[in-house]
Design a protein around this nucleic acid. Structure first.
Lengths: 126, 126
DNA sequence: CAGCATCCTTTATGATACTG
DNA sequence: CAGTATCATAAAGGATGCTG
């Protein structure tokens, strides 16, 4: 018999291992702007400037950089139309939709439970 | 009639708003070590050094700092026993168990789908 | 053991200017 | 429009030494 649970047996990466590449993927997905990109793209395809307008506070540089990281991991598709002015569309890949489901579940929880969290802070501060 | 979906009506915070405090909560929860702490504590109460040993690569400083942020938000309990040498136990609060569920779902997805992600990278690099 | 304080290095992020 | 390049700053992270 084994001491490892089913989820442990199915696990191909290990976030608790210092050098595991899963940590880099986690970093991309949970990065400040990565989270917002993944959530925003659930509403469908977006252009660069649409995303930028939607996500309060991103600089062009960080948006481009975050998009590239997510594209690199295969979570988003980048389609460029060779017209002038340029037209580029970003969307979730099937793999991206899966992570996005999890990321959005977390993001939604935080948005909906923000009052409870802020209340907790006050309790502890008292 | 309304144009807002149910989830929008129930949303008390908005991560897309630049100054919304939900962004800080998200930062704590999705931070490099915050994620690992929340996942690790699902196995039950841990002492400081237990956590440190479990999480490959954390420094004392970062572990303490990350624990404080999560405690501040009310996600973890810190119980200190006034003995010598010191004995401190960390555990999830009910609120913490809820975020932890979402964080762990994301973490597990990444661990289990790491091969697919790495394969995607190769495809694009080719 | 469980930290905190300090100093130092590395990333992350931002502002600005420029280009196909 | 959709970026890239550069410069500058802030934040994250780490190493070391000290303490109740």
């Amino acid at each position: 018999m084994t001491n490892r649970s089913l989820s442990e047996q199915l696990r191909s990466g290990n976030l608790f291992a210092e050098q595991c590449p899963s940590r880099e993927v986690l970093k991309h997905v949970t990065s400040r702007w990565g989270v917002l990109i993944l959530v925003a793209l659930r509403d469908g395809t977006h252009r660069f400037s649409d995303l930028r307008r939607k996500m309060g506070g991103v600089s062009e540089k960080m948006l481009a950089q975050s998009l590239q990281a997510l594209e690199y991991d295969g979570f988003i598709n980048r389609v460029s139309y060779p017209v002038v002015p340029p037209h580029v569309e970003y969307s979730l890949t099937p793999l991206g939709e899966q992570v996005s489901d999890r990321v959005a579940a977390l993001a939604d929880w935080i948005e909906m439970n923000l009052p409870q969290v802020l209340a907790q802070r006050d309790v502890r501060a008292a």
